[in-house]
Every structure is written in structure tokens, then in C-alpha cells.
Simulated scan of single mutants.
Amino acid sequence: MSKMNLLQAINNALDIAMTKDTNALCFGEDVGHFGGVFRATSKLQEKHGKTRCFNTPLTEQGILGFANGLASQGTTAIAEIQFADYIFPAFDQIVNEAAKFRYRSGNEFNVGGLTIRTPYGGGINGGLYHSQSPEAYFTHTPGLKVVVPRNPEQAKGLLLASIRDPNPVLFFEPKKLYRSSVGEVPDEDYELPLGKADIVREGSDITLLAWGAQVEAIELAADMAAKEGISCEVIDLRSLLPWDRDTVAQSVMKTGRLLINHEAPKTSGFGAEIAAAIQETCFLYLESPIVRVTGLDTPFPLVLEKEYMPDHLKTYEAIKASLAF
């Protein structure tokens, strides 16, 4: 075991993947000698060479078009989009090309070796172009997988699993936690299952559900609620596509209540899909309406970032309201 922050865990996972798979390439804007804007790929070029870890032109559409071509020829392509906010020029290459490659050929060819890494979310005072959480756009697209880790140990295992999964995977990294989230991480190669939620804490009164950086917010809210005798079950969804309906439904059948927390705006956020699906499955078990604690339906603000964020205090108030319903 080694103590790592989330960035170091991601770097370690990339190093292991490239060491064990000589067909793996890592590329993106400034990822080479510079190590990327957050240094996630630091020293990978030095260790694995300029032909396996290298810079691309500043064109997201080009990065993903290039990545699709590599992956279609059997290369393990690990592409970085510098900020999730910048992923939209590559949207067509992801949802119309990568996601449909296998389907349109009847599995004669595919781009399953493609992993797209990108930092997402607020918490660094990045303003409206460096703070968005666009995961819901991609969960509408069959053929993709969408994964979001919450801490270093999860990040390493989930990233290695994503790189080795035989489907194109979008791996959203919570940039707020890059250096602030520190924990013990196994030194060896290991994978965590995609599509399987993690029950972080068991409880009996209400289920709290989040992913990425917001898991910390619901854990803090659960601590506050515990002081008033409220027992919260805390679940980290981890994978949004596919998502673990069974684990969430079983929890809600036990607690009778569900609170979903995500940083993206409420309207058409992924929490809406979860709420609809769980209502269908657990309607007769619910003691109160499913509640969503989310970002606001506004562009991400700079000065008012703290007011925008669905923090532990907003979550705590929502827990009390749900129990009092």
C-alpha cells in the first residue's frame, strides 16, 4: 500500500496499463513532457517514450477522431480531453462514431480499446468554462460506458478496468479532488467492477446517492444527520452507464427514502433518470418523494460558486425535510 492523492493514483494506473500493454498509447493536449495541465501524465513520456505518450494539436474533434482510428485498428487508445468543458467539439466523434462503431458493423469491427479521460466539475474557481459536469449528455448514448471515481483507491481500480473494458469508456475525474483526496492505494495491479455501485455506509432511514466529488458531500451530511439519530445509507454509484439499479433499489426498499446529489444542473441531470427508474421499481416502498439536491439551472458561476454547489448543508436540510414529510 502507498499513500497517494487522486492524481498520483491515476498516473500510477496509466503507468501500469502502459507497462503491461505495450499496445497502449496515451495522448492529448500537453500530456507529453509537460504531463498535462494537472500533471496526470507526468513522467509517462520519459518512461514509455515519445511514441507512446505524446502531445496532440489543440483540437478535441481531432483527438477523438484520431483515437477512434487507433482503436479501430486494435490499439489501446487512452485520450485525454484537458477539461470536460472542452469535450463538446468532439461530441460527434464520441456519440455518433465511437458509440456506434460496433453496432453498425455487426461486431465485425469496434473501438472497444478507447478510453477518454477528462477532469470535470467545480471547486477550483474555474468559472463557467472550466467547471461543468456534462456526464448526463453521454448517458443518453447506447454503446458508451461512463465512469466517475470518488477517491484515489477507486480511481486506480476503475481506470484500469475502464482501459481494459472491451467498450469505449468516458472516465470523468473530479478535478476538485485531484490533490485534496488522499488515501491508501494498493501498489499492485487491480480492477474494480464497472456497472456496480459501492455501499459506502449502511443505514436504515434514508438512502443517499452520489458519484465523484459529491460522495464526500453526502457523507458529511450523513454525519450531521447521525447526530440527530438519522441513519443514512450512503451509496457511490461509480458507473453511470450502465448504472447499478439493483443495489440502489434494494437500498430504497429498505430505507423507504432516496436523496440523489449531483453537481450538474437539475433539469435533465442524471438524477432524473435514477429518480424515474427507482420510482417505477420502488413506488410502494417509498415513504416520501425522491429528492434531488443538485447544481442550479444556470451557467456555472465564478463569484457565486459556493452558492451553486450542492454541498453537505443543502443535503442535510433535504434529509430532514424528507424524514419530516
Rank of each mutant, 00 (worst) to 15 (best):
H130M: 00
L160Y: 01
V146E: 01
C282T: 02
N23F: 00
I63A: 09
T76K: 14
P119A: 03
F109S: 13
V182C: 01
G183Y: 09
D244T: 04
Y129R: 15
W211R: 10
L284R: 14
I278H: 07
L209A: 09
P265H: 08
L284V: 11
G35P: 08
G36Q: 05
P57T: 14
I63P: 15
D30F: 05
H48K: 06
G49N: 01
R39C: 02
A222Q: 03
T255E: 10
E219D: 07
P242H: 02
I230E: 09
L58F: 10
A77H: 13
G74L: 10
A225Q: 04
L159M: 11
E287L: 12
I10L: 08
T139D: 01
A71D: 07
P186C: 05
D15L: 15
G62D: 08
E233D: 08
L160P: 02
G195C: 08
T56G: 04
R179A: 03
G271W: 03
T51A: 10
D165Y: 12
M1Y: 13
P152Q: 15
K3V: 13
G32H: 13
E287A: 10
Y178Q: 03
L114N: 01
K3Y: 14
D297R: 15
P299T: 04
Y178L: 05
T298M: 13
V169G: 04
P134C: 06
A217S: 08
